[in-house]
Design a protein around this nucleic acid. Structure first.
Lengths: 146, 146
DNA sequence: ATATGTGCAAATCCTTTGCATAGAA
DNA sequence: TTCTATGCAAAGGATTTGCACATAT
């Protein structure tokens, strides 16, 4: 099974079929700024930072404030429709893929690529300490150029 | 292995057996501030933030500036005698254990615990993409209270 | 109407930087 | 001496916050 490679290159889809519903289903008022952000981030499997999203909105001529971008991304993450990744401590990445999966990271560029969950199998994992249980597994495979 | 406790009554050990040598071996001038930081961080297997280290130094009555703490930790990491961890994007953790290993993290407190490399065995890992090779594997197992 | 979002600028947090002084070789 | 490290305060970047205005139900 080969890893899923997600490139950040993608056109901005002009319509969001069902995105508003999807927001509502998650308990999120589908306001205009939120829908614009949802279209941008959720229409492809990708990893974007808040600043990237802001830049793309502005490039597309949309007037959305930085505060709203951050508020919206945090809200989306809290409601489980996107995932936050702490990859390098520099900035937060927002992942449109909420299915269980892992990541490759290019140590040079910082670029992220999805690794499908089927591509990783654990033969052994440590038991959770007393009184604790697994809440999730974060796996980053760092890559360098040969 | 418990972390060392530093109080005014229990000042830092004034001599760290071999620590100065260890710094020199890594190509680091063992100046006083660096030795103080090395004693604090390297004398036990632990995870500390820059601010925690600064606070402990000040508690112990040492006069070391924030800039020096950061400079020193970055230098140590660059020279491979400690490891930097990007766990949550809030702050950088410095790990005194440079051996290959993994981590548990309490999702509530953010606290980190080492997971020995023997406790994790992979039955399958994805091949590195064309022209890339593995540079390291970062595994965080998030834990919640039962 | 009434609750909820949005935009702007200022504030905050962590970390780095510039530069004059102190320390090491 | 000559190079390198330290301390301080100021700068920087990412993210959050306060608050007046706009929008949604």
């Amino acid at each position: 099974m080969s890893p899923i490679v997600v490139t950040p290159e993608h056109p901005l889809p002009c319509e969001a079929s069902g995105l508003a519903e999807r927001l509502r289903a998650a308990g999120i008022q589908p306001t205009l700024p939120r829908q614009k952000i949802a279209v941008l981030l959720l229409s492809a499997q990708q990893h974007l930072t808040a600043e990237q999203i802001l830049a793309r909105l502005q490039q597309a001529g949309e007037r959305v404030s930085k505060a709203t971008v951050y508020n919206t991304l945090n809200l989306f993450a809290a409601r489980g429709i996107i995932r936050q990744l702490a990859v390098d401590g520099e900035r937060t990445w927002f992942d449109s893929n909420t299915q269980p999966h892992f990541h490759f990271q290019d140590v040079e560029t910082g670029a992220l690529m999805d690794v499908s969950p089927e591509a990783v199998r654990f033969a052994e994992l440590p038991p959770a300490p007393e009184g604790m249980e697994y809440a999730g597994i974060e796996l980053f495979i760092r890559l360098r150029r040969v």
